[in-house]
Write a protein that binds this DNA or RNA. Sequence first.
DNA 1: TCTGGGGTCCTAGGACCC
DNA 2: TCTGGGGTCCTAGGACCC
Length: 426
Amino acid sequence: MAEPIALIDCNNFYVSCERVFDPRLAGVPVIVLSNNDGCAVARSDEAKALGIKMGAPAFQIRDVIRRHGVRVFSSNYTLYGDMSRRVVAVIQDFSPRYEVYSIDETFVDLSGFGDRMVAHAASMSAAVRQRTGIPTCVGIGPTKTLAKLANFAAKKNPLFDGVCDLMDETIRDYVLARIPIGEIWGVGPATEAKLIRQGVARASELRDLPLPLARKIGTVVLERLVAELQGIACLAIEEVEPQRKGMAVTRSAGTPMTSFDELAQAMTAHASRAAEKLRSHGLVAGTLTAFFHTNPHKPDRPQHSASRTTRLSPMSADTFDLVDTVLRCIAAAWKGERSANGYAYTKAGVILDDLVAARVAPQLLLPPDRPRDARLMDALDAVNDRFGRKTLILASEGFQRPWALRADHRSPRYTTRLSDLPVVRI
DNA sequence: TCTGGGGTCCTAGGACCC
DNA sequence: TCTGGGGTCCTAGGACCC
């Protein structure tokens, strides 16, 4: 008998975070927008009922928002990240083995709880609600994929009262027969279309696919997925966070960039941020990619997309190194006049790969003539840590920042900023 | 005239996730 | 006018090696 795995998933997480600090948001439609206030990335149940889809561009749903008084928020990742940490702190009290899978989901090993398993899951959910204010649902199954499906069922069907246990085969058959394959973890639009062409439309039908056929239709990934649906655990709970392989800082521009200088400023900012992220994780990068492109949603306008990848030698997390490298990359990729080349670039970014812990990174055999002082970076980080991000920046980042993000509806950082605390006047 | 077989490594691109 | 950002994994195919 497989061991039970639970998935605890926060309901409409970003919206729930906003509601914790403003009870007036309860019962009304609320959405949270992506970076740059681009599209809806979280929706309350009321907003979903209005037909607002995940990822809907903000400008396309303006009418619905106005007509129904939908409350709109810019993303406040500082707040959501901190709330996520608090949720996990509660979950820790309910099982020693767990995996933080995303900002709003955690897999929990429930083996050993026997008959009390469902009750235990319910009290975990209640404790999270009581101690953080965040509502959750729990799905339980013999594999991660089935726990995910159980969670989906728990969210959709009020019958389950927030906790769905799919360890029982009868209930599992009932649920799988009713869930379309597109809802399964790992089945995206491409696989869904392919499977439907093969006459496979329900989770139960996918589960009953012979493994070799699954392998033939898809890849080893689909084969594994089918095995997981059959109750054969292929994906373990990963308690230790694996060493990350790459990291990226990419942004859409608030106003399109039309000159090389504007792009260079934005790229300086992205590279600086990337270097900062590397150092905060104690890493250095071996490969750097810089890219920029025009707005692909406007195919009638002139399109240009460019990227350059280069090795960082020695591997580095130094702001100056990364900025120099990025500027060389975009200079090599820029077409035409620097003042304006006829293109309006809306997105640019820096991607770092081959990440290694700084202390085990290979060193140069012959050190450079002017060794960069690591203490300079320490000082930079110390100042920005103490006085706020971007207190000290490279001058090449500029001070106008026309490309900077839009965030017109940001809520206060209630839990991480003293200056953002609500003030009570008596 | 006739030109092998068996590997590794790297990269780009696709698919998926939240 | 306005369409996010940051990740992972897998595969195919090319380059290269002996």
